[in-house]
Design a binder for these strands. Structure first.
Lengths: 342, 342
DNA sequence: ATGAAAGCGCTAACAA
DNA sequence: TTGTTAGCGCTTTCAT
């Protein structure tokens, strides 16, 4: 069923059908109705490809994320899709995995679909070297790039993120203020955001002149969904490396949960013997006992802002290149201290 | 940059460029190289829409899921994407929400993109009435429909699912065998799969002649990611409705976690005072203390099977309309009984 | 092995 | 208000 078939059946030209389809106001109501009836009767849907051939926008944005089964990324994608849809945009999602080459080819692919913009979800799309980020420059020459939870300063690239550095700095300060200074820092990603968190932690520790704090910074390289493996990893640090700690700060909630699990195995009680802070304020924080204190990076606020910025950019407005939100520590049972925030 | 530009620069015709692009073997190696060099030099990617105009397959399948932030659905989508990509297919994801009308329009949308097939993830795409499922019939006339975790008997519709009825029946039996027969059954969805689980539970209870067991079947209608709300819901059942129970079986892990949280609040210990069984064997099962016994519905096995079936169907093979896997109970600390399965 | 040319289904000038 | 027509970029016969 094509526009030709419809036009024939309706006794009008294809242009008129096209006008009806695109909601042009230059169609007589009677004509419109006649055409609409045929369209509905035959349940006709215009071919998206033929339509895409025209030059105009397709009201579509590409969303790339490394791993849609990651709790944080999945929620981000969901919020973005919802928000975009509410504003009349479709979204095209690709999960790229964590390999940069693949990312690049996915981006080309998505570009070939004439998206109006692309959203890169998560900070692992930004590398440390210029060469790694070249692909961003290339693409931004064609369409706007929106970064969620990452930052890159370049024309036509817009960043929305949480100030992970300060959030982590303050979370660390809270723990230090509670008198705990032998803190194990767990992380599992060296992405932009991962590095910022680590820097925030280090800054707070250095400021308080905590000796050898970097001996207690450990990277977990296993599957972050396997709490048992994480617990074993922590156990190994405590036992084999002889590291003593009364606090754990993790760059992701699952790592923190793993640390709590370790505590459980050792008969240590949380928070009396071990204080634990996670990051992302995900659903997991309320699944464990005690509940997990965690940094809320205001994902929904971020996705909302990102889409608003995107709409503005597409409308040709001048908008800030970077929108930074503050994180906030949500205090729950896994820490003994209180903070001034709710 | 179009195929014309490339052909001009390479000094060949567009047909030759097209052949190179599509890996035809009717191109002299020297010519191929000449063209490839230009393509790479200009980082040219063919326009997907123009390409889509031709009648052939675009090697794309549409994936629809209600809510990509749901732990189970997100993982399913991820596994499917991965598996499809490994087999040279792209995927187009749409999150539809739980409203049927929207589903329908999404499906039309996805169809207009000439996908080779569509995968419906989760059982909430199948309604109870014929009218609700009419859209499936319509679409299956055009392309194959793959159902994950749902079943519908119709030509060109292929189902891959877990036998939720039996899995839940056996889980219930396990609990009954352990001497617990005042069981609270929590659920939050009346989807096909939700109904099957409930039927399995009821069958086991009826078989043992448990009196009034249906008084302890309760539907939670709030946000399933809010453990606290779930806990309050359970508390309400216990207190206001005066229901006594020493076991909880839930149709989803989060509901079970909520029940454990309720137990924690009441000073009840799990599993001594309350045995709890969840469903899906998600990441959450190892986040709580004690860990949650849960039914593993073998998601990865299912997604693998689904994609294999899909590839076969697209290749014109004759394949079973329905692939059913058995669930298995993974016993963890939230129950006292042991089962024979690992 | 390569090129010329006819569509694919639609949009958007331009005419009427 | 409606119709005619020229592309959009590519694939695919059909010639050569």
């Amino acid at each position: 069923m094509t526009i030709y078939d419809i036009s024939k059946k309706a006794g009008v030209s294809i242009a008129t059908v096209s006008r009806v389809l695109n909601g042009s106001d230059k169609v007589r109501p009677a004509t419109r109705k006649k055409v609409m009836d045929i369209i509905e009767q035959y349940d006709y849907t215009p071919n998206a490809f033929a339509r895409g051939m025209g030059l105009r926008s397709l009201q579509t944005v590409g969303i790339l994320c490394a791993d849609s089964s990651d709790l944080f990324l999945a929620k981000a994608v969901y919020c973005l899709e919802e928000e975009l849809q509410a504003n009349g945009y479709e979204s095209l999602l690709c999960c790229t995995g964590y390999n940069l080459d693949i990312k690049q080819s996915y981006l080309n692919l998505i570009l070939s679909k004439k998206v109006d913009a692309v959203i890169l979800v998560g900070s692992n799309f930004i590398g440390e070297t210029d060469r790694e980020n070249q692909y961003i420059k290339d693409i931004s020459a064609q369409i706007p790039i929106m970064l969620l939870n990452a930052s890159y300063d370049y024309p036509n690239v817009y960043s929305t993120l949480c100030d992970d550095y300060t959030a982590m700095y303050e979370a660390t300060r809270s723990m230090l203020d509670a008198g705990i200074d032998d803190i194990l820092y767990l992380y599992n990603s060296v992405s932009y955001s991962g590095r910022r968190k680590l820097e925030g932690f280090s800054a707070a520790m250095r400021e308080r002149h905590i000796a050898d704090f970097d001996r207690r910074i450990r990277m977990y390289e296993g599957d972050p969904q396997q709490m048992d493996d994480i617990a074993s990893f922590v156990e190994h640090i405590a036992r084999n490396d002889g590291i003593v700690f009364h606090g754990v700060i993790a760059s992701e909630d699952p790592l923190a949960i793993g640390a709590m699990k370790y505590a459980g195995r050792q008969g240590l009680s949380v928070p009396e013997d071990l204080s634990v802070i996670g990051y992302n304020n995900s659903m997991l924080t309320t699944c464990c006992t005690p509940e997990l204190t965690s940094v809320d990076n205001r994902l929904e606020t971020q996705t909302h802002q990102l889409v608003q910025t995107l709409l503005g950019v597409l409308a040709g407005e001048e908008l800030p290149k970077q929108s930074v939100f503050s994180g906030r520590l949500i205090t729950r049972g896994s820490t003994i201290f209180q903070t001034e925030n709710q």
